[in-house]
Design a binder for these strands. Structure first.
Lengths: 139, 139
DNA sequence: GTATATTTGCAATATTGTTGCAAATTGTTT
DNA sequence: AAACAATTTGCAACAATATTGCAAATATAC
């Protein structure tokens, strides 16, 4: 069965053209996407507002997650199976390549736990690493 | 000698009222600051543009550094001594409190190194942790 | 104190994100 | 398959955030 459709139905979301296309973009893309990427890469052009709302819906349903960045942009990437509405489990490392500028989810690299000073109670960790990705290394 | 003045001169920056006040704000504050915080907290009101440019100058000179976030804001915090123009060394963990919403630099908690897949060449790491800070824990 | 270089503030503009509401689309029921 | 209810979309307006050029003001160097 179509993977895109599968995901939407599993989350009880109505299947619309916008959601299908945007979700497809994530599945096809190997890296993370920013709002701007989505707006320019979809064949059919959707309203900015629709893109915003679709992304929001996807985040709320545990389909995609946000990646922290230092430049005023929000990046989104597909979640793994374990995520669902309300609870995300994206404790993997994100890699931003300085050369191709892609952001890649290193799904197999878990964020290590660290020792915190007394009184600090950690709940959720994120780790972002900049460097050169394996693709750019080859060239 | 005045610490603010000291930092500015050490970096070869001309000493202006705006730079003095904004840098002071960072020194006094225990957490990280967003653009908005700075605009509203300085006694004398500076133009938005001035604040933007001042922050940029400080980042370029290794006086402050940016902290990654998932909500479209840029946070800034003071750098330690080791930072200078062009080279930052802020490999410490940042803690965002869910309760007081403050972002704190845990200068003594270093970002642990992790094993990357073949081909990935890390250069700079950042780690952001959400949870409850020690101050809010007490109450 | 004067000259030179830098910085500031204003105005204009660009980019990004949000909200209300009517029209269109999707899912549901018969 | 048609009709109804619920959801989603696009438009318009708006709000917030960020950037640029340029003349006036300020800081540093001499």
């Amino acid at each position: 069965m179509n993977q895109t459709l599968d995901i939407l139905k599993k989350n009880g979301l109505s299947v619309t053209e916008g959601r299908r296309e945007i979700l497809n973009l994530f599945i096809q893309s190997d890296g993370a996407l920013a709002h701007a990427d989505i707006e320019s890469n979809t064949k059919i052009s959707f309203d900015r507002v629709t893109v915003y709302r679709t992304l929001q819906t996807f985040v709320e349903n545990g389909i995609i997650h946000q990646i922290p960045t230092t430049d005023n942009t929000i990046l989104y990437a597909l979640c793994k199976d374990k995520c669902g509405a309300g609870h995300h489990h994206d404790e993997h490392v994100h890699f931003i390549c300085n050369e191709c500028e892609k952001t890649i989810c290193l799904d197999d690299v878990t964020v290590p736990s660290v020792k915190f000073p007394k009184g600090f109670h950690p709940l959720q960790s994120a780790m972002v690493v900049k460097g050169i990705c394996s693709d750019c290394r080859k060239n």
